[in-house]
């Protein structure tokens, strides 16, 4: 009976913990990231996830012509220098934050409407560790009215 209870408790934790971690991540985005997109207007869509070292996340979005956009990558400090790239649909690199001292945000303008990809990568620690670091990463998109 005791063993059964233990198992149920473990299963419950497996289910609940990721939800809690995810919710905390979104709390981080609202508190730490969204205020920083100003004076751009936040596009209103939450793109945040808990990522591990070495993980890659992508955001597909449409850039309208002659509209100014700001892409802001907001990640927890413990993850180090999170890199981001702007790619076209042929996966050609248009911008790479690593070439700009791992800048957290950059502004973009396209003179024709097109689908673009924001790719984010969490760096890998050079020291081999037993526990892999993980933390919140948010891709915030703002546009200018």
């Amino acid at each position: 009976m005791k063993k059964m209870f233990k198992k149920i408790a473990i299963v419950a934790l497996i289910v609940v913990v990721p939800i809690m971690v995810n919710a905390q991540c979104k709390g981080f985005t609202k508190k730490e990231c969204l205020p920083q997109i100003k004076p751009y207007v936040y596009n209103g869509q939450l793109n945040s996830a808990v990522l591990n070292e070495g993980d890659v996340a992508e955001l597909l979005l449409t850039f309208y012509n002659n509209q100014d956009y700001r892409i802001f990558i907001c990640s927890q400090e413990l993850l180090g220098n999170t890199e981001f790239k702007l790619l076209d649909t042929d996966r050609n690199t248009l911008f790479y934050s690593k070439d700009h001292d791992y800048v957290k945000f950059w502004d973009f303008k396209s003179n024709s409407t097109q689908q673009l990809i924001v790719q984010v990568r969490v760096p890998t620690s050079e020291i081999k560790k037993e526990i892999v670091q993980s933390g919140c990463v948010s891709i915030i998109v703002g546009f200018k009215e």
């Binding site: 596009n43 209103g44 869509q45 793109n47 996830a49 990522l51 591990n52 993980d55 890659v56 996340a57 992508e58 955001l59 597909l60 979005l61 449409t62 309208y64 891709i139 998109v141």
Partner: peptide, 11 residues
């Protein structure tokens, strides 16, 4: 390798 893909639609 892509762990998560987000799709944004204009607000």
């Amino acid at each position: 390798k892509v762990k998560k893909i987000f799709y944004n639609v204009p607000s």
